[in-house]
Design a protein around this nucleic acid. Sequence first.
DNA 1: ACTTTTATTTCGCCG
DNA 2: CGGCGAAGTAAAAGT
Lengths: 240, 240
Amino acid sequence: MKWAEKIRQAIAAGHVAVIAGRCSISYVGRASSELGEGERLIIIKRDGSVLVHRPSGYEPVNWQPSGSKIELYTEDDEVVLRAARANEVLKIRFHGEPEVSVYQLVDEAEMVMYASEAEMKKAVLLRPELVEEGFRPVAEERAAGRAGKVDVFGVDKNGVFTVVELKRRSATPEDIKQLARYLESLEEELGRRPRGIIAAPSATKRALSLMKTMNLEYRCLTPRTCMEILRKQKGLDAHF
Amino acid sequence: MKWAEKIRQAIAAGHVAVIAGRCSISYVGRASSELGEGERLIIIKRDGSVLVHRPSGYEPVNWQPSGSKIELYTEDDEVVLRAARANEVLKIRFHGEPEVSVYQLVDEAEMVMYASEAEMKKAVLLRPELVEEGFRPVAEERAAGRAGKVDVFGVDKNGVFTVVELKRRSATPEDIKQLARYLESLEEELGRRPRGIIAAPSATKRALSLMKTMNLEYRCLTPRTCMEILRKQKGLDAHF
DNA sequence: ACTTTTATTTCGCCG
DNA sequence: CGGCGAAGTAAAAGT
């Protein structure tokens, strides 16, 4: 099979191979799956990652992450692509001759992402009024016993200990419970219960009602706001 | 630009377009990201999902899930592909002429997956001795106050209430804490603390030590074992 | 090396 | 339709 040889050479040369064709797929590993005959797009990268994409959907239907060992062999007159990792095997059996394209991609650019949860914290430390007027951070990542670590720990305008939990996405009941556990742990340690504030772009209904019950507070804070503040600061830094 | 027109037509016809070429990418939405010039593989599916793949790595570096609106336009003599969803915009700016392949994929096959957490539960309900000799399930998905829902609730051979938490992967401290919260909630409701058992293929060291502290029990149960039991049952069903 | 946490998570199910 | 938890989560960060 000439096309199979083309794939072998692409892998050996460290190129990216894209295969479009009729195949059936089996996966055995953490789970098992079977997918009957159909036309799919298969991508093989130089690091050994394999992706199988159906004609719709964001997620691959089957895959193997980087580092898997890729083999091509013939079985009953059909070509089988086998991608194996520890305890996990993905087999793609081709029916008929697929279209194979090989690309030599050079990509040295670095990905820059803004406004992660870490950057939200930076913004809050830079502009504590984002949380509340008069809030003063005392520490970041303060330990809260065995409950874990608090995002930002400080005192409010009245000198009351205040815990701020940052989320870059909508706050869920799970987040509220986590904050409650922090407060419980800190209450033991400090002798009095600190205020608890969740700062997130939004909160689910149940999260809000749970906060009411648990006497916790919500403050709207979007990653974008944080990003803009950091960007401004960056501009200032460059200026001086 | 002839190649841009080819992409437009592919989208209109409901085909899958694969673009290989030099581009730079910006994303603004839940976060923001910038990726400078480099050669990448871009996949556009008929449902509006867009994937940007670098030459290595399982995950796309940028993407837009299905349902996004795709536009192609020219800006400063360069083609820009814009994929937009509510509050999220992905822009791919092409530098030079990329290779464009269009595939008409037909895939009606149904994916069958074995041994999800749901199937582990089925197996336990079918063969409660997987958890412990003499264990009898009373309910599945029993509510545990505001802590959430318990996977399997039953009584052990001595008639003691027992909560089983199933995990298809290694049990973590977070899982243990979750089980503990269930028990706490059920203790309030039932007046006495039930036994708590985590059934998972393995457990992390900290999870195990936490279980000791919290007086919770571990039972090894792999998805594969559950799968085999269900498969046997399936065979029996077919027989009768 | 192994464990834990995060994610532009996405996806599916249940209320 | 929104909330909530699972995923073959994968990949990064922490220990």
